[in-house]
Design a protein around this nucleic acid. Structure first.
Length: 283
DNA sequence: ACGCCTACCTGCTTGC
DNA sequence: TGCAAGCAGGTAGGCG
């Protein structure tokens, strides 16, 4: 599932190939993909003629900055993918929005499960793009995301670590895969309460979050089923996971079988020896 | 603030 | 082999 490393990989690859391109037309094949503006025909009309200036990322969204200051956001959610296809490439049954570029290429938004959302916003004024991300927490790979900052945020919360790591208003970009990986690296149980962490544990968690995301990024993202980059290539990071989807397999640190529990309706993988259960928890 | 639920969706996997 | 149930999980919104 696309999380920060996957979305960042997509954004970087698009940044190397999209700036300067003119979006000649857009075909919306599944209307609900368009979050704003409505109706979708208006989106098509407004994006047409736009010229790509830069492609970046915020949280788990690909952000396309146009020359005129407007901004298109693409939230991939579960199965979304942005694919650059040559003109005349075979049609994709899961394409939800197709952007015709003036140079003949196509930028396709493919999304089997239709959870993905695309928006087109002014850079300033009403409905500006900043509002879209106003509720998101800090970017974990930004230099400003320090251990001290994480500590002060954790101190004020009593929720379980796993739940908090998935909360985009707490930290932006971490999803189920990297949450489990970060907690294993930090040797912290997913059910630990945030406000019970010692200073040393917070520092471990801070390093672990960043290391897990960086490793995912170095591998070009983790592909399990749907994730591919704009060239349709899968990433390599899934092969380096320490706990995610390794239920029953030996822990890389101590050899104990990895366990799977459900936290907040999400599959959660951890090592019962390296990540000791908090007081009062029998797991 | 927090946990828990439902809805949104489809396709792959599992079990009978 | 066929078919149905289970599962995957990011996010919004509602309730207590």
């Amino acid at each position: 599932m696309p999380e920060l490393p996957e979305v960042e990989t997509v954004a970087r690859r698009l940044q190397s190939r999209l700036p300067g391109a003119t979006i000649a037309d857009a075909h919306v094949l599944w209307g609900r993909t368009i979050a704003y503006p409505q109706p979708p025909e208006r989106f098509s009309a407004e994006i047409s003629g736009g010229v790509v200036n830069r492609v970046g990322r915020r949280a788990k969204s690909v952000v396309v900055y146009l020359d005129d200051g407007r901004v298109m956001t693409v939230a991939l959610r579960m199965t979304g993918a942005l694919i650059l296809a040559a003109s005349g490439a075979a049609p994709d049954p899961h394409a939800r929005v197709v952007f015709d570029l003036a140079d003949g290429r196509e930028l396709r938004f493919r999304d089997a499960r239709k959870f993905g959302r695309i928006g087109l916003y002014p850079g300033r004024g009403r409905r500006r793009v900043a509002d879209v991300f106003a509720r998101h927490g800090p970017e974990p790979l930004a230099p400003s995301f320090t251990a001290a900052r994480l500590a002060s945020r954790l101190r004020r919360r009593s929720a379980r670590l796993k739940t908090l790591l998935l909360d985009q208003s707490f930290i932006a970009g971490v999803g189920n895969i990297y949450a489990d990986e970060a907690l294993w690296r930090a040797r912290l149980h997913p059910l630990r309460r945030a406000d019970t962490l010692t200073e040393a544990e917070v520092r471990r968690l801070h390093r672990a979050i960043r290391a897990s995301l960086r490793e995912g990024l170095a591998g070009g993202g983790a592909s399990y089923r749907d994730y591919v980059d704009p060239d349709g290539e899968p990433g390599l990071a899934a092969e380096r996971m320490r706990v995610y989807r390794r239920t029953g397999e030996p822990c890389f640190r101590c050899g104990r079988p990895i366990e799977r529990i459900v936290v907040g309706a999400r599959a959660t993988h951890f090592c019962p020896r390296c990540q000791p259960a908090p007081e009062g928890e029998t797991a």
